[in-house]
């Protein structure tokens, strides 16, 4: 057998030795107590470092880090929005889009899509407050957003409330409600106060990578419904939400 070098010992502790070589190193360690003790110390270091820092993986992502990604995308949007604005200026129809800048709304849709992408894959902690405390959830988030949030019933469309959470957005608190269908597909409703001069808008659609978003502004609140489902299916849900919030 090849002599055991220090590199073999590191590779042994880090679990990257091929099986045959691992057995040779084990045989060597059995006869070399000092090195064997060294292996134990190194392995304990590895384990301690993982114990110290693995919990970071489970922390919620700070909004500013998501914003760092969104801000970058934003430049593409700013460009797209300005081209769009030129297009409609030429076509004259710009009137109902000027009061709430298209760019600000696109950014709102983007934030909703990012929040959707971040929280829907969660298995154990998708929401802060679950559907079993639905009344408390809506009372709490209504209070934080300063409006009376209603709970849309989406069961006729196959989606049941999972729960919701409070997020922070650029303008202040944001509520996110999550719904799930029998296949485990999730859609999220993202609600935040908009600037006071914001005019109501019709549905707008945005595609953010895999996430489709329908969003609209209604009485100073912005709503965005996000999902990785077919656009038509998402539109049906968005219509239902809109109708229930505006009976």
């Amino acid at each position: 057998m090849n002599p055991v070098a220090e590199r073999d010992l590191h590779a042994y502790v880090d679990g990257v030795l091929p099986q045959a070589r691992r057995l040779e190193v084990e045989a060597y360690l059995a006869e070399h107590p000092a090195e064997s003790e060294q292996m134990r110390v190194w392995a304990a270091q590895n384990a301690a470092l993982r114990t110290l820092y693995d919990p970071v993986l489970k922390e919620p992502l700070p909004e500013r880090l998501l914003a760092a990604l969104a801000a970058r995308r934003w430049q593409h949007y700013a460009l797209a929005a300005s081209l769009f604005a030129i297009g409609i200026a030429v076509g004259w129809i710009a009137r109902d889009t000027v009061s709430t800048p298209a760019s600000a709304l696109a950014s709102f849709a983007r934030q909703a899509a990012v929040a959707h992408a971040v929280y829907t894959p969660e298995v154990r902690h998708p929401v802060e407050v679950g559907a079993d405390e639905e009344k408390h959830l809506f009372t709490w988030l209504s209070k934080r957003l300063g409006t009376d949030l209603k709970s849309p019933r989406l069961s006729p469309l196959g989606f049941e409330l999972v729960g919701g959470r409070l997020l922070s957005g650029p303008q202040g608190p944001v509520a996110q409600f999550m719904y799930q269908d029998a296949k485990g597909q999730r859609v999220t409703l993202y609600v935040a106060a908009q600037k006071r001069d914001g005019r109501d808008t019709a549905f707008r659609f945005s595609q953010e990578d895999r996430v489709s978003v329908f969003y609209w502004v209604d009485r100073n609140y912005g709503y965005a419904l996000s999902g990785e489902i077919r656009r038509e299916a998402l539109l049906r849900v968005a219509n239902s939400v809109y109708k229930q919030l505006n009976p």
Binding site: L49, V56, L61, R73, H76
Partner: peptide, 20 residues
């Protein structure tokens, strides 16, 4: 840009940065 796929890596980047 693959913002989605970058998001997937943020927790590990944070773990490494915290340790570093």
């Amino acid at each position: 840009m693959e913002a989605h796929s970058i998001i997937d890596h943020i927790p590990r980047l944070r773990r490494y940065a915290r340790a570093l």
